[in-house]
Design a protein around this nucleic acid. Sequence first.
DNA 1: TAGAACCGTGTACAACGTACACCTCGTTTA
DNA 2: TAAACGAGGTGTACGTTGTACACGGTTCTA
Lengths: 249, 249
Amino acid sequence: MKIDRDRSVRLLWEPPAEATRGPRAALSQARVVEAAIKVADAEGVDALTMRRVAETLGNTAMSLYRHVPGKSELLDLMVDAVWGETEHTPRGPWREGLEFFARQMWAMYRAHPWMLQLTTSRRMPGPQAMTRQDAAFAVVSGLGLSAEEIVAVVTTVSQFVDGVGRTMADRVQAERETGVSEDEWWNGREALWRHFTPERLPMTTRIWHAGGYERPLDEFEFGLARVLDGLRVFIEAEERTLVRKETCQ
Amino acid sequence: MKIDRDRSVRLLWEPPAEATRGPRAALSQARVVEAAIKVADAEGVDALTMRRVAETLGNTAMSLYRHVPGKSELLDLMVDAVWGETEHTPRGPWREGLEFFARQMWAMYRAHPWMLQLTTSRRMPGPQAMTRQDAAFAVVSGLGLSAEEIVAVVTTVSQFVDGVGRTMADRVQAERETGVSEDEWWNGREALWRHFTPERLPMTTRIWHAGGYERPLDEFEFGLARVLDGLRVFIEAEERTLVRKETCQ
DNA sequence: TAGAACCGTGTACAACGTACACCTCGTTTA
DNA sequence: TAAACGAGGTGTACGTTGTACACGGTTCTA
């Protein structure tokens, strides 16, 4: 299938035209996307094959191609549909707003971990994803930041959530594939621990014995607090006020 | 191929036993891993097939299986081999040490962007990766942090570099696949920009017109400074000293 | 010198996305 | 009202992937 990116744009940003002729369609783009999301939620992104999606709809693989140009475009549609599920109007001062933005994103990733395996740099941005980002920009406008800085601040938060989310998503996927929980799995790695000697890994073994791996801090909560603290230092910096010549709104 | 994780451990942590019988081997585990890394560097992770690796060595696909149990294990070996390429002894006070740690990681990801597509949660950690992490722990020891906090601080930095790196890796891969640079590609998305109207995306269009997308801030530099600032707030916090009962080292 | 251990090859299979030709409907037009 | 048309869904088939399996050649050990 040749990739026509402008068709992807139409697919995402323009409502699909309704057919005026032919038999009444049992399927529809929306139903295909919905079914695909269900498959991904329940069985992971590896199980997301055209045959599997079609099967859950009671159809054959090729029937999907009447409603979706190809798998890549189906993924585009799935991603944007999920972005549309969450509220995206953070309120309040910048810190609370960004925190809300991050927590919503986090909740979404927890519900649909496969999203992180699909969001790559050139996936076509859809209206839902863009609206969400726009709302985040609004939260940090009015602080005297330049346009570039607004983008950088929001990107920093998004990228943080993506990072933590990816770790979480990998865990979820591994648990599903192996049927073994994270803790159980690592506990069963006796053959590995044997190599963790104080000579080879002095700090790691020390931390190990101090119980540093037993009750790890929540990665999301810890990291989010640090990132927001770091942004506060930047936003409230006095020197920055000098550079605020061409600010954005 | 059934997955035997304990065999993966031996593969990574114990030097391969030399054969005493049979014909002199043209291939070796090291040569296979080296060839695979070259393929991934030059052609990306998608081109990394057993057939392709074998081809660059002048052999058949199945010959690789004499030296590597399967593709998954080959990836394990590639990842750890690359971790071994860089110096991993950051020095100096904690901030400089963590910065060095982050910059080394960043340089490595720039040289081998495919690494980010292979590091998933249950990939078996190898000696090189662990040694590196151990050195990072050492950098933030002696600050009165608890064991959990040491782990959390290092994880925060690693995860930040992973996040920025992943964005960069996606870009590199997309540029290779399409043969079109990032800027060219987005500039050609006329059909997309048409939908970016002030009514739909007020902040985005405003930022756009203010030139916020023309000279974006360096994501790595901006983010790293913020993360380290955030960690400084945490490390130097006075209240934290009260909780420092069971510190590590 | 026989046999065991090891190296590399060729063939084959199951899954994947999807191109293609086809039949079956329902609507539109003459 | 009949013919033409366009759309929905199916079945078959192909190329690509990882890798199981059986085989033949090579070199050291008993």
